[in-house]
Design a protein around this nucleic acid. Structure first.
Length: 583
RNA sequence: GGUCCCGUAGCUCAGUAGGAUAGAGCGUCGGAUUCCUAAUCCGAAGGCCACAGGUUCGAAUCCUGUCGGGAUCACCA
């Protein structure tokens, strides 16, 4: 088993389950856990078993602990089991256990850490889903990176992941886009269009598309009725914008397997659209009615109208208020499409739908959870991860952006300036529900303030050692089996212990949908590597390479290899490169 | 007014399904380089974990309330 923590959790539970008192009564063991003590002096592992069992057994924790310790002492991997504090049992494991674990890490290769958390469960991760009305701006960045890294993480943790992008290509904003493009088209034909009218997209990025259309269609479109050119230009605009977006995403290293079009949900297939069908499904469950919504609490908007609409009784399934399915003009609402889209995912057998959204979608959480409950009857789950805003700075000064004038910092500009790896790492070097300050000056600085370089440097340093060994000891076969039992230094074994945490970190990060834990773990592991490396400065005996001692060198290189692989794997989840040299 | 998120060192933030003496980076101060890469390391100082109650063997973590900051609130997308 790859996970040291679950391994010992099973051993302890086995001891308890084998006991007479358990077999007679049985009791809940779910709270029994293994953790690494905060203070290294307490040993390698600690368990709360005795404290957890005190209540059901109606015994003193220390009395229970004594019995457990007795059994644990028989474990050949355990050097000592001590009772401490309020009833913790601290375990110290043999050096051989840890060096064996190092062998295990190496034998697992790239798969090490990928515990079977997911067990093949189908998960849908939807992220980015930016409107196809222009290039991606920096506001999309965080969600894109968090979503992509989360998908990487879940995949590694054993889930069957589908990465999905929902193209909002059906709403009024597409009409606005098409009209804006039409204007650029006329401009390309030589017409003086003056300034872009209020309400249309002013950005320069539409100019090439206008030119392209002019080249392809000549003046033909301009002579058509609007009802004729509008669909044509819509189609061309959506395609062009999605191309822009895909290029931007590629620059950030973000990919999706499925691009799902909202328009498809509106299309009539047979006698009805996917949306009508989905609404019928809700109807069958008695969750649809015609009625009016109460006005918002507090400040009521001035243009508030009381009107009867087709509504989803989402309050029956946990929402705060019912949701409109149809607008007053008879069109479906955006949410109606969401209903159909969710049903589509559910019909594709996903048991968990994850949505990575911006903080401005906070109001979405309850209605999506309600929707999941209504459509699946409780068998599928909607999980929403909200990403807080990113505030941009340059040398400590906030950067102002104005969407109205079309002046915003694009995702591409950020990637081009600071690099994909740094952008991705920084976006993950924070809990997603905490706001993030992003300073161009600091992120491009290749030093202390910049954890991505710190981690990449650790990886490069490992490879530097391997290169150096090959140069210093040309006769040494670096791939030969190493006797890792020669590793006895505390710093070396600490590195193994740290690597032993990796499967547990992957597991917990996957369960909680918190990819940032990987980034923080990488920083810690890197820190230990750097620290150990520097110990070799003062004490040459601790250096990795000893030309006069091939066996010792091989053992230490094995440790270096393992560290570099774990870092590389973590960086792969983050979505950053693991460079072998940094000059 | 409702809902959601946040409040931890001077600053920016972690805190492992409730655990032992709350951690890291930056900044400050003091050190380490004829050496496998100093983009690194070692040490010191720095805390009423916003506040008040509650739950329990045990709370930064869970519950209630208060204060402070942010997001959001019918037909848009």
């Amino acid at each position: 088993m790859a996970n040291v923590f679950t391994m010992f959790e099973h051993r302890i539970k086995k001891i308890i389950e084998d006991s007479e008192i358990y077999q007679e009564n049985g009791f809940d063991l779910s709270r029994v856990s293994i953790e690494s003590p905060r203070d290294k002096a307490h040993g390698d592992l600690a368990t709360n078993a005795a404290m957890v069992l005190a209540k059901p057994l109606k015994q003193n924790p220390s009395a229970i602990a004594e019995k457990l310790v007795l059994a644990l002492d028989d474990d050949p991997d355990v050097v000592s089991a001590d009772i401490a504090g309020p009833g913790f049992i601290n375990l110290r494991l043999t050096e051989a256990f840890w060096t064996n674990h190092l062998d295990h890490i190496l034998s697992q290769g790239d798969a090490y850490g990928g515990d079977a958390t997911g067990q093949g469960a189908k998960v849908n991760v939807e992220y980015v889903s930016a409107n196809p009305t222009g290039p991606m701006h920096v506001g999309h960045c965080r969600g894109a990176v968090v979503g992509d890294a989360l998908a990487n993480l879940l995949e590694f943790a054993g889930f069957d992941v589908t990465r999905e992008y929902y193209i909002n290509d059906a709403g009024g904003q597409i009409e606005v886009l098409a009209r804006s493009v039409f204007l650029r088209y006329r401009e390309a034909l030589g017409e003086d269009i003056g300034s872009i009218p209020e309400g249309l997209y002013p950005g320069d990025y539409l100019i090439p598309l206008g030119q392209e259309l002019a080249q392809k269609h000549g003046a033909a479109l301009a002579e058509m009725d609007e009802s004729a050119w509008l669909p044509l230009i819509k189609e061309a605009s959506i395609d062009a914008m999605m191309d822009l977006i895909r290029t931007d995403l590629a620059a950030l290293g973000v990919r999706h397997e499925v691009f799902f079009s909202e328009r498809d949900l509106h299309h009539q297939t047979g006698d009805s659209s996917a949306i009508s069908k989905a609404i019928s499904t809700l109807e069958e469950k008695g969750l649809v009615y015609r009625g009016t919504l109460p006005p918002p609490k507090g400040a009521v908007p001035e243009d508030w109208e009381d009107r009867e609409q087709l509504l989803f009784r989402s309050t029956d399934v946990g929402d705060d208020m019912d949701r409109a399915l149809m607008k007053s003009n008879g069109d479906f609402t955006y949410f109606a499409a969401d209903v159909a889209y969710f049903k589509d995912k559910f019909d594709r057998q996903f048991t968990e739908m994850i949505f990575v959204l911006g903080a401005d979608h906070g109001g979405y959480v309850k209605r999506m959870e309600a929707l999941a409950k209504a459509i699946s009857g409780g068998s599928a789950r909607a999980t929403i991860r909200l990403c807080q805003l990113v505030k941009l700075f340059r040398d400590g000064e906030p950067i102002k952006m104005s969407k109205r004038s079309g002046e915003f910092v694009t995702l591409r500009e950020v990637v081009d300036e600071v690099g994909r790896d740094a952008v991705r790492f920084m976006m993950l070097y924070r809990k997603n529900d905490a706001p993030l300050d992003f300073d161009f000056a600091k992120v491009t600085e290749q030093s202390k303030d910049n954890p991505v370089f710190y981690v990449q440097y650790a990886h490069a340093r490992c490879h530097s050692v391997l290169r150096q060994a090959a140069a210093d000891m040309p006769d040494l076969d670096l791939d030969a089996a190493a006797d890792t039992g020669l590793l006895v230094d505390g710093g070396e074994l600490d590195l193994v212990r740290k690597m032993a945490e990796f499967p547990r970190i992957v597991d917990s990060a996957a369960r909680t949908h918190e990819p940032h834990r990987i980034a923080f773990y990488l920083y810690e592991l890197s820190s230990q590597l750097h620290a150990h490396w520097n110990r070799g400065r003062d004490k040459p005996g601790l250096r990795f390479i000893h030309q006069e001692n091939a066996k010792l060198t091989l053992a230490r290189l094995a440790l270096v290899k393992a560290v570099s692989r774990v870092i590389a794997k973590g960086l792969a989840i983050v979505g950053a490169d693991a460079p072998v040299e940094m000059r």
